[in-house]
Design a protein around this nucleic acid. Sequence first.
DNA 1: AATGAATGAGCCC
DNA 2: TGGGCTCCCTTCAT
Length: 589
Amino acid sequence: MGPTTRARFVHNRRRRRRRGPYAVPDDDDEEEDQQEASSSSSSSDEGEEDAEEEGSGEVDDDEGEAAEPSGKEEEVSPVAAAARSGRKASITISLKKVCKVCKSTGHEAGFKGAVYIDCPRKPCFLCKMPGSDTLHCHTTLTCPHRVAMEHGVIPASRRNTNTSLDYVFQSQVKGKIPMVKPQFLIPNQLECGNIKFHQRRVTCLEFHPTKNNVLLSGDKKGLLGVWDYVKLHEKITYDSLHSCILNSMKFDTTNDGLLYTASSDGTISSTDLDTGIGSSLLNLNPNGWNGPSTWRMIYGMDFNSDKGLLLVADSFGFLHLLDRRLKARIGDPILIHKKGSKVTSLHCNPAQPEVLLSSGNDHYARIWDTRKLEPNSAFASLAHGRVVNSGYFSPQSGNKILTTCQDNRIRVWDYIFGNLESPSREIVHSHDFNRHLTPFKAEWDPKDHTETVAVIGRYISENYNGIALHPIDFIDTSTGKLLAEVMDPDITTISPVNKLHPRDDILASGSSRSIFIWKPKTESDATEERNREKAKEFVYGSGSRKKSNGKHENSSDDDSDGSCDGKKKKKAKKTRFTHTIKGKGKSKV
DNA sequence: AATGAATGAGCCC
DNA sequence: TGGGCTCCCTTCAT
């Protein structure tokens, strides 16, 4: 914590608190104001200490501080801080624990070992209900949705239940779903990991539609990687397709070799993967950079195979239609989300390609008929609590909708032609984020005929025997039940990008700059693992939440991978990848 | 080991 | 409507 931070801290005491949809009640601010006035003593536990803080003036209790390992904030001279802020030195000294989140005393937030201790004054980080110091409330650690994930479902408040239409819908849905659910294998065993193939974080993944072991990946720099994860050394990268974030990839369903890519540079590229020849299909910024207010970025894209149409949405709320053969735009752009707001994703219905689902920063997901597109002609507008990261029709019947919203809820609509006023289910799940990460997107398992299983990375960590890990969650969207948590003690980073193989039981995940391939555990894997665990006195994947003192062991991730990477770097600049992990028996150098 | 930067949405004025 | 400020479990490089 630097001196400037300290200065900001002093300054911040005057700030207005942000009020989100689930913001804590007002008394929080009032209390803070009282502290500022330092006149009346607060009724809270911290009151005494606050008074001490404000009143004690120049004295710094160094002796008391020495025993406080986490009292970093106090080490900075307030005089220096004040000097930097250009004001006369008004000395603010905290003697006791200071919460780095709410800046008040008496408690501390942050990691204690692998367990994150919440600030009791803040909303639950998972379900966003008010913090534990307010009436009837809890912190993230004790959130009912966390303790038992299967209780994370909030049933929809369906006013029109039991209408005759509902029965019709139900029977129609049921008619399309095979009654016998095939055995579902969770790809929970780390097969291989490719390290620093990408120089920036992975933003999208896609399996090749016909070549079974080929995975494509895009990153924040616009690099496209094509990788055969069985023949580990077969890798091709394209670095000149895009100049920044590769947001979406789609194969031409009529030509497997043709890949369309959408980027925040405002262009759509078409690349022939057999010849490596690429061409630009669309450029929304033909006049170059004229500042952020005019720069158009492309996030959502999908391909309508019936019409040979490419649907593209920009960061100003507009939808563009593109004829693939003519390589020309069709008609004028149409406003499909709030003007000036980002359209985050597009998806054509697999059963009826003219039906389009769009998601946006304007807190809505919308269903459109692309045959009669006009502004405000949406078939339905699905309201969400915050930004909608993604929306997908179910992969086979196209009858369901799955959305991921930054209000930490996954929403499911069971029948798109039914009552869409409110979702059939809301599933509380941690996937909101604050900058720096690729947005989380819950995605259907394309192989699941029952159209219930979805996969999504988890933001908040769980303490798995002393290591804070961020699992990749498999969720039963019909019940909200957590089917599986996929993680590995060597992967301590968050995996926001996940893709399930269209035919095999394989999961590809993108975590920061690395890509990982997961397969189901075989019997021998399981035995081997049990033995290893025994040896290590380490019960992996039990989901038990024991206290421990190992914080994020990020170093373990970097240790072997980084050193390997370093050696590779000397050899060849471009071939930075090829380091693989098989299983979890990693030897540290 | 501490620190800062990259970076986007929400909210306030 | 736009600029400015803030933010909670990041990640990585220096």
